[in-house]
Each structure stands twice: as structure tokens, then as C-alpha cells.
Amino acid sequence: MSRLIVVACGAGINTSTVAEDIIKQRVEQEGFTDVVVKRILMADIEGYLARPDLVLVVSMMKIFRKFEVPVFQGMPFLIGTKEEKEVVLQKILDILKKK
């Protein structure tokens, strides 16, 4: 079964596309072939939380609630420095390596 990362934002056009693309490219570079990165609307998140293949959530919005899977703040992908982007990428890769 492939593993799913969702990138959730309020409206889903320009901003989550950046985060999705950066994560996707890095995940491929690191050789994970079983990982799917998908951008979604925060309003649709409930349907994804129930999925057994979901491994983590990247949220472009402030995080107000708890999830069963790890959740990371994705805003650095849009406005962070290279170092700040790298910090979030490392957290994501750590989760993927644990399996």
C-alpha cells in the first residue's frame, strides 16, 4: 500500500501547490517510491483522516486541533528561508524513514 501525505490549505490554488511540489520533489530524490503527496482543501480533511494510508498532514493554516497522525506547519515552504524549508522537510523524511 502506498503512503499518503496531504498538504491542506484554505483554498487550494497557488499556495499549497508550492508546498506539494517541494515535498514531492524531495521525497522522489530520497528514493521513496511508495509515497503519494496530495494537496487538499482543509474543509475536506475529515475524509482523508479516516484513510489507513495517511501518514502525515502538512497544514498551511494554523493548527487548532489534534490529529491521529503527525501534523506539521507548512508555511515555511511559502515564506521561509532555505534553512526553514529544510527543517520541515527533515521532519517529513524522519517520519517516512520510520515506516
Binding site: N14, T17, V18, D21, I22, F77, I79, G80, T81, K82
Partner: peptide, 11 residues
């Protein structure tokens, strides 16, 4: 372009 904008926003 979005990627390049995101690079700009961080500097």
C-alpha cells in the same frame, strides 16, 4: 514561477 516566488518571499 510559484517556486521562485516562494524563494523570494523567504528573503
Amino acid at each position: 514561477t510559484l517556486r521562485n516566488l516562494a524563494l523570494l518571499f523567504g528573503q
